[in-house]
Each structure stands twice: as structure tokens, then as C-alpha cells.
Design a protein around this nucleic acid. Structure first.
Length: 162
DNA sequence: GCCAACGTTGGC
DNA sequence: GCCAACGTTGGC
């Protein structure tokens, strides 16, 4: 039996890479590079699988919030930017034979009908346990439960993308 | 292995 | 720009 589909929240600063940028990318797809946190790396490398659902979150935005829905296209593979000295994410300590950092490819499915702000999400009791809303969390890759996924898409007016 | 200093994230 | 909450680094 196939593995159950899982759900994730990915954060991006829209000034660096926005959901609109993803929609405008070839095949609405890009590699999710530049993650340099081990917990987030472990999820990219081990847990995200093709077909998994993604909530696209804008951090450091006005206001911050979930803006769109995407999906995982392929399982984790080494982040090419770690080996590129001209890239801001270059990591001279990473061994090409034993890469330290990983990416997945993600493809946009569609924007929410309107931005679901962090403030709005905080007011939804069904989302009390959501990783995003827990004190002190900063991970740029976070798990989302099936119930949270359904609720966010319902609030975002995109039940068609559940 | 401890922990102080430093760096980063990200809401506000 | 502030700063809380982490994560990382490096001396010991």
C-alpha cells in the first residue's frame, strides 16, 4: 500500500522568493534551496515525498501568512547551492560525497482566495496545535496535520485543493 | 561535555 | 529597529 500523503508548511520571505515567483517559474516548479537548519534538513531529506501537500507561508511580510498551496514533486536530493562558492548559501564544509544540505522540488497548485494572516490563524481554535503557532518555533519546514490542512484550505477558500 | 558569546529568525 | 527564542561555535 502506498504511503499516506503528508502535509507541510514551507516558509519563504517574499522579498527573496514569493508564491507569485513560484507561479511564474517554469512549470510552476522550483527547487527549495538554501535551507541551513538540521531539523528542517532532516525533513527535506527523509520525510517529504512526491504528492505531499504544501502550505506556502510568507514570513517577514506585511502581514505574514499563508498565501498558497503547492505540492512536493520529488524526494530530497543534495542542494546544489552548497557547492557553489558564488552562491550565498555556499557551505565549504559540505563534502560532495556526503552532502550536508538537501532540497526538494515544489510545484504551485494555486493561491488562496485571500491571504490567511498569522493573526487570523491564531484566532482559529482548531489550529491551536499547529506547529506554526507554537511559541518559539522558527523552522522553515514544518509538519501540518491532515485536520490542519483541511481547515487552512477551507478558511482559504480552496477546498477544491484539499 | 559545558556554556558564554555570537548569529539568525521573524513577529512586532 | 527591537528583542525573544533558538541554534551554532569554540575555548576549556
Amino acid at each position: 500500500m502506498a504511503r499516506k500523503r503528508r502535509y507541510w508548511l514551507l516558509k519563504s520571505e517574499p522579498s527573496a522568493f514569493s508564491f507569485e515567483d513560484l507561479l511564474a517559474s517554469p512549470k510552476k516548479t522550483t527547487l527549495w534551496d538554501g535551507v541551513r537548519n538540521y531539523q528542517a534538513r532532516n525533513m527535506l531529506r527523509d520525510d517529504l515525498q512526491p504528492g505531499d501537500g504544501i502550505l506556502f507561508y510568507h514570513s517577514n511580510a506585511k502581514p505574514p501568512g499563508v498565501v498558497g498551496v503547492a505540492e512536493v514533486v520529488c524526494a530530497g536530493y543534495p542542494d546544489p547551492t552548497q557547492f557553489d562558492p558564488s552562491d550565498g548559501h555556499f557551505d565549504p564544509k559540505s563534502d560532495p560525497l556526503n552532502p550536508r544540505w538537501f532540497v526538494v522540488d515544489v510545484r504551485a497548485r494555486g493561491a488562496l482566495t485571500e491571504l490567511l494572516s498569522l493573526e487570523t490563524l491564531k484566532g482559529v481554535s482548531k489550529l491551536d496545535e499547529m506547529a506554526l503557532l507554537q511559541r518559539g518555533q522558527r523552522l522553515s519546514v514544518q509538519p501540518v496535520s491532515p485536520a490542519e490542512w483541511r481547515e487552512v484550505l477551507r478558511l482559504g477558500g480552496r477546498k477544491d485543493l484539499v
